[in-house]
Design a protein around this nucleic acid. Structure first.
Length: 821
DNA sequence: GACCTGCTGCGGTATG
């Protein structure tokens, strides 16, 4: 016993490891037979903390000196959401084995692993395997895959918070539940950053196993030191009220870049990295060659080069999106700059954590606002951090598309019996309440194709044998299925490469179709001239021109989190009550807030402000619930619908994260609507369905569901089908189900997901109920107020396109200044 | 004299 412990102790001492106590707490928990969740900041040695538990157990079991024993089979399975991390973890763990004289091997298995190694692993597993949830499922889909886990002691899920809230998390749950039924004594540990629902995160990870073993959360006691500083504009009077690029702040951060050895500059969108990179070089040409760009549309080769250069301290600054949020251990990063609001507390913390990335070091973060109200967000987020109000990641419940995929995986990997599979599936948190009917519907669907697809053999993927075994229909189906494993759906894009063949990344068709050959655009930080487009590839050459457009990508839109909105309301409340604030952001913003107060009202936390204004366009009514754009989208639609029920009137609706506007050519009878309780959450779902185009939204959702459930084939590697073909075939299936198979559970899932994710129904309902408890203040400002202005601009931009908006804004701004002056 | 948008992540033939 002490021998192993002493060896490990010595190993730590050799490295001068400072938090040895924490590692001991972790493996003692493991040795006591517990399982659970580890909550620790990066750089605390959490990897080793989890690792040495099973190592010590194994050492203790060896009667003689463990160095003489030949280890058998796979002992530890380590899941990471990022394949790029796998090799780093493997290297660290292999080093620790070698240092201890432990005869274990550590290997990775991801899509980067060579065929030869993968084949060999099927015959001879290493003692520890670092892999992704997807690769685990591929492994389980191999015949005989189950045998590989005969000796497994522990499964670790690294970065569990990253997986928890998505279908990748559900997939992880299913994989773990299966491993537990293969190895009832298996112990599961997760590693998670701080999120709002750590207890729940632990319970989801353990599923039914939580009840069988003692489970716990191990936390690092030491608090991460952090300083946050907002970079303030010269004058708030001239600071834009709307817009999100913040290019006018570029000059301000150059001294920060110079003052530190390495800086990461996080922006929220990909095009913004291109613009900022470009502007930074213009403003500080001396940074040429010492600065790089990194985002998700760049070729992996380019990205690897940047990551490597960063690690070797060859770069002073990298402008990036959240691709660098996770990823490789960037210890040399000294300073982090966040441009624009990150919209969430957890996201902000994670980025700040990228600097001072070692135990005891202080993280330094600068926040650069891009418009006036983002200063409120900055103050709100800092207050939330102080009170450790971090967002929760909610697990997904009952995603039947993932279950369809999983049962097909099980069938491919040697087959399953109904009762066993059902018990296993019910052992997960996601499917703990699945009914017999639902499960049998899925079984029927994969064996017969269900009500509407039974005529097509390709949907009869699984056969039920006489002895009650569900098995895959044939080898070709198994092969195809293996290629479809996973829950991430990506859009097809055009490749960008030099004539010489060097790949730069991908770009969307919509953008590139607006550029003619001979014209130039900015991409990967370079000015490129379009030569020609051929077979989904954009060929380019270097351009010497100075102008050129910056690509845009259709990405997600991250709404303001509940935590940030809550704290924003409180910040505004404090300002409304003229409380003294220590938040410099709020003090800076005072002139603008005073304007809002003078023209309309600064709402206190128990007040919902509504503004009604007339203009040449007609009647505008603005609402400011501060609930994030998705909720506002739904709320705006429902409200407009309810008002139109009272009196026929047509609207357009616009929103941002702070509020929404309904606009009509006629006078909007908001006064009467308020009397009639338009904010009621009664009949909410019915009214949502009546007011938004739910079918179209569900159709879009269904594309992902069809892909996860394996209903559309994406084509063989290297000859992928075009996106529009995928869209067409999933759309076709959607229509078929709508018409002939209304009870189809995957179709129903598309609608539930639309409500839950697209419209955030729960949050919308909560917001409506909260509003009814509030005092409503209706004001009639003569001008568009600072709160209203950004919503107007967003709407105009979508309607008119950005160039013409600039003129309009100019005019409005002049009017504002006249009125203010 | 500014005010321009929209994230990230994975997987994929096969024998002795």
């Amino acid at each position: 016993m002490t021998k192993g412990r002493a060896a490990i102790q010595a190993w730590f001492d050799e490295r001068g490891w400072t938090e040895f106590d924490f590692q001991k707490r972790c493996w003692n928990a493991y040795l006591r037979g517990e399982q659970g969740l580890l909550n620790a900041p990066t750089g605390s040695g959490k990897t080793y903390a989890m690792w040495f538990g099973p190592v010590m157990e194994w050492i203790n079991e060896q009667k003689k000196d463990f160095r003489d024993v030949k280890p058998t089979g796979l002992q530890v399975l380590w899941l990471t959401p990022l394949r790029a991390l796998a090799s780093d973890i493997a290297r660290a763990l292999q080093d620790s084995c070698d240092g201890l004289g432990l005869p274990w091997t550590v290997e990775t298995r991801t899509s980067d692993t060579s065929q030869a190694v993968k084949q060999r692993q099927l015959k001879r597993m290493p003692q520890a395997l670092i892999t992704t949830p997807e690769s685990l499922h591929v492994l389980l889909s191999m015949s005989g895959g189950a045998d590989l886990f005969k000796h497994l002691r522990m499964a670790v899920v690294d970065e569990w918070h990253e997986l928890l809230g998505s279908k990748r998390g559900t997939q992880t749950e299913l994989g773990l539940a299966h491993l537990r039924s293969l190895r009832p004594k298996l112990r599961t540990w997760g590693i998670s950053a701080t999120i709002g629902n750590l207890e729940e995160a632990k319970d989801v990870l353990l599923g039914a196993a939580a009840a069988e073993a003692k489970s716990k959360i191990v936390r690092v006691k030491q608090k991460k030191l952090m300083t946050i500083e907002s970079v303030l504009p010269e004058s708030i009077e001239r600071f834009p009220w709307s817009g999100h690029l913040g290019a006018h702040m570029v000059e301000k951060i150059i001294p920060l870049v110079h003052a530190s050895k390495t800086t990461l500059i996080f922006t929220n969108v990909r095009s913004q990295t291109e613009i900022w990179y470009h502007r930074l070089l213009e403003a500080a040409p001396e940074l040429a060659g010492q600065m790089a760009i990194h985002h998700g549309s760049l070729d992996t080769g380019v990205r690897h080069w940047v990551e490597d250069a960063l690690r070797r301290e060859r770069l002073r600054a990298v402008v990036c999106t959240s691709t660098l949020d996770l990823g490789v251990d960037f210890s040399p990063v000294e300073t982090v700059i966040q441009v624009g609001s990150p919209k969430g507390v957890a996201r902000f913390l994670q980025r700040a954590g990228r600097s001072g990335h070692s135990p005891g070091a202080t993280s330094r973060m600068y926040f650069v606002p891009t418009n006036a109200l983002e200063l409120v967000e900055a103050a709100a987020i800092q207050e939330a951090i102080k009170q450790t109000d971090v967002e929760a990641r909610k697990p997904i419940i009952n995603p039947l598309d993932v279950l369809v995929q999983w049962l097909t995986t099980l069938a491919s990997g040697g087959g399953f019996k109904r009762a066993e599979a059902l018990a296993e599936v019910r052992g997960t948190h996601a499917f703990k309440d699945i009914s017999d009917e639902e499960f049998d519907w899925v079984l029927d669907f994969i064996t017969t194709g269900g009500r509407s697809l039974h005529a097509y053999d390709e949907y009869k993927k699984v056969v039920l044998n006489e002895d009650g075994d569900y098995a895959i229909a044939d080898r070709r189906t198994a092969l195809r299925h293996r290629m479809q494993i996973g829950t991430i759906t990506a859009d097809a894009a055009l490749k960008v490469q030099f004539l010489s063949g060097k790949k730069l990344g991908t770009i969307e068709e919509g953008f590139i179709s607006g550029i003619k050959p001979g014209k130039s655009f900015w991409f990967a930080g370079r000015n490129l001239e379009l030569v020609r487009i051929k077979e989904m590839t954009v060929f380019v050459k270097k351009s010497s021109k100075k102008d050129g457009r910056v690509p845009s990508w259709q990405g997600g839109r991250i709404p303001l989190s509940t935590e940030v909105s809550e704290h924003m309301r409180m910040q505004i409340d404090a300002a409304a009550q003229k409380k003294r604030t220590r938040r410099i952001e709020m003090r800076t913003l005072e002139p603008l807030l005073n304007l809002q107060r003078a023209w309309s009202l600064l709402p206190e936390a128990d007040t919902l402000l509504i503004e009604k204004t007339f203009s040449r366009e007609g009647c505008h009514v603005f609402f400011y619930p501060f609930e994030g754009r998705l909720v506002h989208e739904g709320m705006g639609a429902v409200l407009a619908y309810r008002i139109a029920q009272m009196q026929p009137i047509s609207f357009s609706i616009a929103m941002n994260d702070y509020g929404f506007e309904i606009l009509s050519e006629d006078d909007i009878p908001i006064e009467e609507a308020l009397l009639r309780d338009v904010f009621s959450s009664d009949n909410l779902v019915e009214d949502i369905y009546a007011s938004v185009n739910a079918t179209e939204m569900a159709r879009r959702r269904f594309r992902e569901i069809a892909r996860v459930a394996g209903l559309v084939f994406q084509g063989y590697p290297g000859q992928k089908k075009l996106n529009r073909h995928l869209q067409a075939s999933s759309g076709l299936l959607f229509d078929v189900f709508e018409k002939y198979d209304g009870g189809n559970l995957l179709l129903r899932q598309a609608y539930t997901e639309t409500l839950a994710f697209q419209l955030e129904e729960k949050r919308l309902r909560r917001a409506l109920d909260a509003i009814r408890a509030r005092r409503i203040e209706l004001r009639y400002p003569e001008r568009f107020t600072p709160f209203a202005f950004p919503i107007m601009v967003d709407r105009l931009r979508e309607k008119l396109g950005s160039e013409r908006v600039t003129d309009r804004i100019q005019k409005m701004k002049l009017q504002l200044e006249e009125a203010a002056g």
